[in-house]
Amino acid sequence: MSPPTIPDRYHGVWQRTLLETPKGRDTTSWVHWLQTGLWHGDLRVPADAERATPAGRAQQQGFAGTTTITRPDPARPEVCTWQRSIDFQPPRSTPDAGHMVFETPERVIETGIHGSYLEVWERLPGSVGRRIALAALDAAGEPSAERLLVSGRYLMHLRPREAAWPADTAPDDTLTQVVQRHADEAEALLDFQITFGTWGEGVWAVERATRPALEGQARPCTLGRAGDAEATLACEGLPPRWRVLEWHAP
């Protein structure tokens, strides 16, 4: 049985070109959302983050999980909900959901449901067609929370931290606040790796990553099926065996 899929108009990699909130406008942060038929990955890097320091790295955001599209009120735009199974930042108190209006097939406006904001998203050329979502297999051969997502010519890898949140972490705390309270645990709390770039002809060219040292690297990277349920990956630093969650490669 095939997994549920969201409408084709959402597939691809979307670059945020504008964020408006009551606090102001942001047109400089690097923000990309990769969407397959069901799974999403997201990476957000503030332009002014001093990422060589723990405080700067803690300003980054990123997450992955499944996506649903609903229309509970026919008089309102449809609702996109990003259900986060892994998250660089601490848990939120409200769902990540927004009303979505497509101005053109390549441009969608998101307005907040549980917060006051407006975001403009524009789809990157070459980001539709191929859609792959994989979960890394652990030593026992079971799927882990680590994800590898492909959309068109783009690839995103997301490996969550192993450390649990400290007991005093409250909903809507920022990672900056948690790291400030637990400076001795900073490296473990920041050990959440998200890496994004173009992938073609067996090479993954890393554009942005939560670990800045990875940016600009060109890694040999090949991916293939190993049956209906598994895939194999040859890419430095990444697991070799993966469970297939979604595979659409025309």
Rank of each mutant, 00 (worst) to 15 (best):
R181M: 08
D191W: 09
T198I: 10
P143F: 03
K23S: 14
P77N: 09
I194G: 03
P74C: 13
E78I: 02
G152H: 00
E187Y: 11
A52R: 15
D228S: 14
E246F: 05
W165L: 04
E246T: 06
G141P: 02
P95K: 07
A64V: 04
D8P: 06
W82L: 02
V206D: 01
W33V: 12
I109G: 04
E142P: 08
W39M: 06
T94G: 08
P250T: 01
A133N: 02
F88Q: 05
E201H: 15
E246W: 01
H157D: 10
L189D: 00
R219Q: 15
L214D: 14
I194A: 03
V13P: 02
V101D: 13
E119T: 10
I113R: 08
R241S: 10
W204V: 06
A209G: 04
D73Y: 07
A209F: 00
A170T: 15
W33P: 06
A218Q: 15
R16F: 14
L43D: 09
H157Q: 10
P171W: 05
Y10I: 01
H114I: 10
G200H: 13
A64W: 04
T21D: 11
S29K: 12
L137G: 04
Q89T: 08
R159C: 10
Q180F: 06
A97Q: 03
V101C: 12
Q180M: 10
Q15V: 12
W39R: 02
P143R: 00
V206S: 03
P4D: 10
V244P: 02
A234S: 10
H157L: 11
D172N: 07
L18H: 13
E110H: 07
P250G: 06
A75N: 15
H99K: 12
A170N: 13
A135N: 09
E110Q: 06
R71H: 12
L137Y: 07
T94R: 14
D138K: 02
R123W: 03
D42P: 01
V31S: 09
W121C: 09
I194E: 00
R219W: 13
E187H: 13
P54F: 13
R84I: 04
T68P: 03
R219S: 12
T53F: 10
L134V: 04
A231F: 00
R159Q: 11
E146D: 08
T210V: 08
V206E: 01
L124K: 08
A167I: 05
M100N: 03
L148G: 02
Q61Y: 14
Q61R: 14
F196D: 00
I86N: 08
G197S: 14
H11L: 14
P171K: 03
P160T: 07
A145T: 03
A229M: 06
E78G: 06
T27H: 15
Q177P: 11
A75M: 11
W30H: 14
Q59N: 15
E106M: 09
D184R: 11
P125F: 05
G112F: 07
I194R: 03
E119D: 13
E142C: 14
R225Y: 05
S93C: 08
S144W: 00
R243T: 01
R153Q: 06
R147W: 04
I109Y: 06
